Simulated scan of single mutants.
Amino acid sequence: MNPIQEYFYKISEPERSILLFLRKKILESDPENITETFSFGLPFFKYKKKMLCYFYFSKKHKKHYISFYHGDQLDYPELISEGRKKFKILLIDENTDLPVELILNIVEEVKKYIR
């Protein structure tokens, strides 16, 4: 198993399936330019080899989240900065419908800030 597969394997259900679904959607949104790497023990998504977003778990909120680079440029009420300078996060709640369209819209917007 590669490190990315191991990362997801360690997550319990239903969170694992949710994150794998989001991973697939993000990668499929621009298969020629969005790639996945494993850095700092986390799966990172890159756009044209520049940081785009990553998955992580919030101990404070006890939920997984997607952290978006250039979050300081984004104006979505669903995103939380919590003192971060360049990133904003979107908490993933396994008990509600996934905001897939919102996530893909945010990914598209972040891509505009990557040069």
Results as ranks from 00 to 15, higher is better:
51 M>C: 08
42 L>Y: 06
88 K>R: 15
48 K>I: 05
2 N>Q: 06
46 K>T: 13
27 L>E: 10
80 I>G: 04
96 T>V: 14
80 I>E: 14
28 E>F: 04
43 P>V: 08
15 E>A: 14
33 N>T: 11
28 E>Q: 14
84 R>D: 07
16 R>H: 11
35 T>Q: 12
108 E>R: 01
43 P>H: 03
15 E>K: 12
114 I>Q: 03
1 M>C: 11
38 F>Y: 15
90 L>E: 01
26 I>G: 01
112 K>V: 08
33 N>E: 13
83 G>L: 06
30 D>S: 09
59 K>V: 05
52 L>S: 02
1 M>E: 06
60 K>G: 04
67 S>T: 10
104 L>E: 09
105 N>D: 14
9 Y>K: 15
18 I>T: 11
113 Y>L: 03
33 N>F: 13
10 K>L: 15
58 S>C: 12
45 F>K: 01
46 K>Y: 06
69 Y>I: 13
100 V>Y: 05
35 T>M: 02
35 T>Y: 03
91 L>F: 15
96 T>M: 02
77 P>T: 07
76 Y>Q: 07
1 M>K: 13
38 F>P: 03
16 R>D: 11
8 F>I: 12
112 K>M: 07
97 D>W: 01
4 I>M: 09
100 V>N: 08
51 M>N: 13
26 I>P: 01
30 D>A: 06
18 I>H: 12
49 K>W: 06
102 L>C: 07
82 E>K: 15
35 T>N: 12
89 I>N: 12
2 N>M: 09
23 R>A: 05
102 L>R: 08
7 Y>T: 10
100 V>G: 03
107 V>C: 02
22 L>S: 02
79 L>R: 04
72 D>H: 14
87 F>N: 07
79 L>S: 04
49 K>E: 15
85 K>T: 11
91 L>A: 09
41 G>S: 11
106 I>E: 03
95 N>A: 09
92 I>W: 10
44 F>G: 03
88 K>L: 11
85 K>Y: 09
30 D>R: 06
69 Y>W: 12
98 L>N: 08
40 F>L: 12
52 L>K: 00
56 Y>W: 14
72 D>N: 15
113 Y>A: 04
64 H>P: 00
84 R>L: 14
106 I>M: 03
6 E>L: 14
81 S>L: 07
70 H>I: 01
25 K>Y: 04
71 G>A: 03
104 L>W: 04
21 F>S: 12
91 L>C: 06
